[in-house]
Structure formats: structure tokens, C-alpha cells
Design a protein around this nucleic acid. Structure first.
Lengths: 229, 229
DNA sequence: CGGCATCCTCTTTGATACTG
DNA sequence: CAGTATCAAAGAGGATGCCG
């Protein structure tokens, strides 16, 4: 990217991470931790492979990512965030929070990966009963199941399954998000096709007190992918 | 910008404000409030006028900016952030905070506008003596003087002059920042050419308790503006 | 396979000139 | 003042090829 050449901290930051795809690469590394090249490609549907290679090189040069080559037997390269790279989580969080209402818009044929749920869920859910026993919500919304662990007042979202989750949600991402975030009530979500099994009270435990303004899931169908002008 | 077409709040946010120059336009509107086209051009050195017009159109279409045309006698158009646009301040703040250490790098021939100081200063300075009388620091670092008002535990930075500031700083932006942020002590700053007039204690009042890691102003001279590869 | 590099096309940008 | 018009250069997207 061409430098903006301005003595301003925002402009300088954008000089480094303002390129197309760059922040999404950081998103992947933040959510999934150290990743292989092909894992990154999977988490970044639509990126051209030469761009991914370019961006990783740039990020390495800027001290945001390090590349470690595992010894010959396993022969795999891992890309990992440096502390400086991890410091970008506040930027990603702010962006994710600002962008959350946009998930209410038409879903169209947008790509989806289950681990992307981590950001909106950890940002918007809260544990209303910090002293209650830990609980688990299992989500089946994409290719791989995700777990929401609620314990001691914190919410953690990561891939996996549980032998005995308090609730299991199965359905489209927008229905799952809509329900968890409180924009949809249980009956409406069920009516629209979300499968809810288990203890519904656990859902209320994590829902934010103030539901968001933009309603998630209006079941809109209109196609997306802006066609300028 | 082409949509990333991902059902992820970060990607959706970047679909809207990820274009080159877009966040800097928002920066201008956040710092200066409602602005005329030419004011924006002044605050965005390097932007091509067709791009500014394009971006403003896009931002208006996205509901981030509104354009108001004043009645014929004054004949001027004002661009103003909507509440949705103002909500981007958290994103800008996170970016500004992350980018602040980069101001320590080579200054080169980067452009500078005094009002850009608002972000780093309001983010990094604190009022250590909330109960003391209000104080004013006047800064001469660019074309127009800026005032730092310290009162009741808050810091406000805006353009202007004061009849009786507690301190006046005159010098390069990096010296001013370096001193205020605590990376440079008074003697060093003076030795490097910063003019400091008035009550030095007021400076200590606003300086952060933990000085930043990257030292501001190393008086580096190397040119900037990346030349890929 | 995993991790790229090359080649080609298309879109976006940057610089400048011009207009109601 | 607030833009539009034009055009060259840079960057993105997509397909495919290479190499351990």
C-alpha cells in the first residue's frame, strides 16, 4: 500500500494494516491462533493465493506476524501473531462491534465459517449469573460445531463439541446469532427453522440486557456484492 | 470496494469503511465537525479530488455522512457525520492508539495538520490533578495553534489561542508529542529545539504515568513512502 | 499435499485539467 | 466552492504451474 504520508497515528496505522485483506488475516490469526497457510485460505474465502502470500510477507516485515518452519519430519509452516499483532485485537473488536448491526442485512450468498462467531458472541454476550455453575451451549451453524462456555462471568467461544451441553442450537448463523443476541425470541427462532434442544434458561443467562437495534435475521433474500454506482 | 462477501461483522464493517481514504475522511469529520469540501481537502493532503467526491457519495449512501446544502446567500455545502458515523470514533480511537508508536518512526517529509494532534493527545494524556484549577497548554506546531484544556479530570484539544496559557510549546509535532507524552524530558526537548514557555508543572499534570514504549522523536531523517519490495 | 510464483485481465487509484 | 472528466499506473482477482 502506498503510504498516506501523514504525521498522524491513524494514518500511520492504516499505512500498515489498511491494505485489503490484511485485517481479515489478523482476524483469522486472532481467532484460531497459529495457523498454516491452507488454514488461512480456508478462513479467508475469496482471497487470491498470491495476495495471501504477499500480505503475509508484508505482515512479517512489519513485525505483526512471524513465520516458523517446523522441522522436516512434519514439514509445515506456522504463521503466528507477534505481541504487536495481538494488540490489534482492540481494533478488531471495535470494528466487529460497529459492524455487528450489518449482519442483520441481507445474508445473500455470503460465505460463512463457524469460528467467525467468536467475535460477535464474545463481544455481545455476557454472563448474567457469574455465581451459577458453568454452562455450555453447542452451536451447529457451519461446517464445524462451536462451543460457548459460560463460567465465572466470562464467555469463551471455541470450536468443539460437548458430551452434555445445556443447550444445542442448530440452524443458520443468522438465526443462531439473532436468538443469542436477543433480537429473536425462542418461539420466533423456532418458527423460522432454528432447532433448540435443552435448557432454554441458559440462553437467557447469556443474553445482553439491551437487545441490539438492528434485528438479526430478517430472512432477507436480495443478492449482495455491491455493483458500484 | 468489492464486498468480501463473508457473514462476519468485521468483514461487513470493512465492506463499508475499508476503502482507501474512507476512515481518514471520517477522522476529519470527527475532529473538525461539519466541514466543507475544501476543508476536507485541506485535512487530507494527497487525496485526489475525484476520490474525495466518490468517497463522500459512498459514505452518504451508507448513512455515515449527510450533506446539507445551505441556502443560496451563503451557498456552501456542509458534510456532517450521522450518529452511525460518529459511532466510528471507537474504531478510530483503537487505530490511533495502536498506531501511536509508529509516530516515533522517521518523520520524513510527512504532511502535518495541527488538528491531527487531537487524537493522540486526548488518548494519551490524563489529568492527574482533577481537583486543581483548569489549565491551558498552547501548542504551535503547524499552521494553526492548538489548545489543550485540562479541567475536572478531562483533556480537550481544539484549535485556538488563549490570552494566558499556563504553558506554550513551539516546535515540531514530534517534539511536542514526545514531551507531552513523556518520552522526552524538558531538558532534552529544549536541547532539540522545542521552545517551552511558562509553568512546566502543568506538563507533568497531564503526562501519562507510564511513558510509551516507542520513543517519540528520534530525529530520524530517512525518507519514507514505501517503495514495495 | 502445502506453500507459494507467474501470467494475464480487470478494477481502483492518482494526477491533472477543466466546469457550473 | 464543489465538484466532473480524462488517462496512465498500480493493485486485485483468477487460473495455472512449480517444487520440496
Amino acid at each position: 500500500m502506498r503510504s498516506y504520508d501523514q504525521y498522524c497515528s491513524v494514518a500511520r496505522a492504516l499505512d500498515v494494516i489498511g491494505d485489503r485483506w490484511t485485517l481479515l488475516i489478523v482476524r483469522e490469526l486472532l481467532i484460531r491462533g497459529p495457523s498454516r497457510y491452507t488454514d488461512l485460505q480456508y478462513g479467508l474465502p475469496g482471497i487470491a493465493t498470491n495476495l495471501l502470500a504477499d500480505r503475509l510477507r508484508d505482515l512479517e516485515a512489519e513485525g505483526i506476524v512471524t513465520k516458523e518452519v517446523a522441522p522436516p519430519p512434519v514439514a509445515t509452516t506456522l504463521f503466528r501473531l507477534t505481541p504487536r499483532g495481538e494488540a490489534l485485537d482492540s481494533v478488531l473488536a471495535a470494528l466487529g462491534r460497529w459492524g455487528a448491526p450489518l449482519l442483520a442485512g441481507p445474508t445473500g450468498d455470503a460465505a460463512f465459517r463457524s469460528h467467525w462467531l467468536k467475535f460477535p458472541l464474545e463481544l455481545h454476550l455476557t454472563d448474567q449469573q457469574p455465581d451459577a455453575a458453568p454452562a455450555t451451549i453447542e452451536i451447529h451453524a457451519g461446517a464445524q460445531p462451536m462451543l460457548v462456555r459460560v463460567a465465572d462471568g466470562t464467555i469463551r467461544v471455541h470450536p468443539g463439541t460437548s458430551p452434555d451441553p445445556e443447550v444445542t442450537l442448530t440452524g443458520t448463523p443468522s438465526l443462531v446469532l439473532g436468538l443469542l443476541v436477543g433480537a429473536l425470541d425462542v418461539d420466533t427462532a423456532r418458527a423460522r427453522g432454528l432447532k433448540i434442544e435443552g435448557d432454554v434458561a441458559t440462553l437467557r443467562r447469556v443474553q445482553p440486557l439491551i437487545p441490539p437495534t438492528g434485528k438479526v435475521d430478517r430472512s432477507a433474500k436480495a443478492g449482495r456484492s455491491k455493483v458500484k454506482r
